[in-house]
Design a binder for these strands. Structure first.
Lengths: 331, 331
DNA sequence: CTGAAAGCGCTAACAC
DNA sequence: GTGTTAGCGCTTTCAG
């Protein structure tokens, strides 16, 4: 393994000079620089990053904890994280945790163990020991803890859900079902709350039986829709907490011989790529997924260099995207 | 920063004993072990992995080069890679390269730089210098190079495409269009070849104008379908080289007022989760995506410890999944 | 502008 | 069973 000492010998200088030439070429004399660089070239020398990291106590690695990479929304967030990270010279250690808290703790420990400099957690769970001596070097994004001990990047889910519900109300819907996300998720709670807000503001009483559990997968949307379609008094619209469930629901509704939106309107959340290409194209809330990633990285780097406080937060914008899956209430 | 020396002092032993206690507890005496462990506990000591890695010249990191994480098929492959990797104590450095060769080279260099122990490349491109002194520690999976200087994991794409084409022929289709993947991809070439094989075996001449370019995105499937639907002599079936394009194509066909499969049959490739939930559910080729990841990791670890040769290859199984998007040719 | 040398935290000979 | 010590490759004082 060709190391800095060998290069130093070849160039007839000290290892310090080689190091300096590579790090700050301008502080060595042109003659020396040339000698060193040509030795580096000739030896095919590549600094051993492991040693550099060890010496400098910086890994330039970021750990990203993602509940499931198979969700296309998260895939976009990760794209954004990686973009921003590599722009700043950081690599991304990806951990598809599937919500396994043990796995999340293990991976978070990579920071404690100095295999990584910081963590971006995309789920509402603190993977660090509560009573840790040092506050965690972490940013919580997308699905955030209410009491996160770190900067957060999130959407005002309550407001977004309210906007979508208002859209349905404007179309004349009065009996609206909802397919929720996982019970423990703050996302679910906030979106349900926004849904309730809008109904309350319109003086409509919510039939609690129209709140169906789901888990953000296509399958769960499909299953929940069965219950709603077969309800004694069928809703005229269904608001799904993400697009995957909405697509599952639409498929189910059509298989039951009903039409979307003529018989039932369906709305989603996220605006994934498939939303535009399902039948009918899906009305949904679009979120700047990649920007979540960019912001999370910016906050994390800021946290590491002290420019960002633990209580920092970024609320990302959303937009109602109306397509053809929602329409006037049937008369 | 609490290090091994501090723990040694606290326990009243040498650093070597602390190291031994942590690595092979059974070779130290029970009394010493207890002293050390309680000192570790009390100090909240965590070994500095950076130092361990540096010392042992092993990072236990794997770099994964993925063309685009937004593709749900790749997302599953990555899941599989991560599973297998963490089972063997390796972390995954994910690189969403978007096919940027410069980025791929940069990331591959993490191995040269000893930030990672090996690379899994999911695209048909060699990110290492051709004339490198040492052969690359890499496994090529999914989209493989014909002359990869490393183990490969792949599907027999030609055979799979032939099987799908035969399915369409059996349904009576004689005029079949194809929406291809990116021109440079060996996947595209092999699938087109399998398509040609099947037609040739059935004595059907292929109208080259029915071979449409695409790039594996929903959008490109949609666009390509426009051309096929408007062709002077419309095909009765379209074979798409992945499910995303098939879903885009179906949407386009329906918007043109045609029915799937009554007017045009559509087939995909990959069997992503959405394939089951589109309308109509998609006939496609299913691939064991996660297993690609598992196998790739197994080969890479084998390559590193010498148990696997550079010319190793694993051909993964596929299965024709017939759903409702393909049907009898219209009379 | 350059060299000598210390030392980051850990492991593994080697000696006892 | 345990301690002493060298050294992984690099950066960075500190002298010159």
């Amino acid at each position: 393994m060709t190391n800095i000492r060998k290069v130093a010998e070849m160039a007839g200088v000290s290892v310090a000079t080689v190091s300096r030439t590579l790090k700050s070429p301008d502080i060595v004399s042109p003659g020396t620089r040339e000698k060193v660089l040509s030795a580096v070239e000739q030896a095919g020398y590549r600094p051993n990053l492991m040693a550099v990291q060890f010496r400098s106590q910086k890994t330039r690695n970021l750990v990203v904890l993602v509940p499931t990479i198979a969700n296309t929304f998260f895939a976009r967030v990760i794209s954004g994280i990686q973009d921003a990270a590599s722009q700043h010279g950081y690599a991304v250690l990806l951990c598809n945790t599937l919500g396994d808290e043990l796995a999340e703790r293990d991976y978070a420990e990579m920071v404690t163990n100095r295999q990584a400099d910081g963590v971006i957690q995309l789920r509402a769970f603190n993977p660090f020991e509560e009573a840790a001596a040092h506050p965690p070097i972490m940013v919580n994004a997308c699905e955030v803890m209410d009491d996160a001990p770190c900067p957060r990047v999130y959407l005002d889910n309550r407001a977004a859900a309210r906007v979508m519900t208002e859209h349905l109300l404007e179309l004349g819907h009065r009996r609206i079902g909802m397919i929720k996300g996982p019970r423990q998720s703050p996302l679910t709670r906030d979106r349900v709350q926004g849904f309730r807000d809008a109904l309350a503001a319109a003086n409509i009483e919510l039939d609690e039986s129209l709140l169906c559990p789901g888990d953000f997968t296509l399958e769960s949307g499909y299953r929940a829709a069965i219950a709603l379609v077969e309800a004694r008094e069928r809703p005229t619209a269904i608001f799904c907490e993400n697009d995957e469930m909405a697509i599952g629901a639409i498929q189910c509704i059509k298989e039951q011989g009903l039409r979307v939106p003529d018989d039932i309107s369906v709305a989603g959340f996220d605006d994934i790529a498939f939303a535009r290409y399902c039948d009918p194209p899906l009305t949904t809330i679009s979120q700047p997924a990649e920007d979540f990633g960019h912001e999370a990285v910016a906050l994390l780097l800021g946290l590491m260099d002290g420019g960002v406080q633990r209580d920092a937060r970024r609320v990302m914008p959303f937009k109602l995207v109306t397509r053809d899956s929602t329409g006037q209430v049937p008369s």
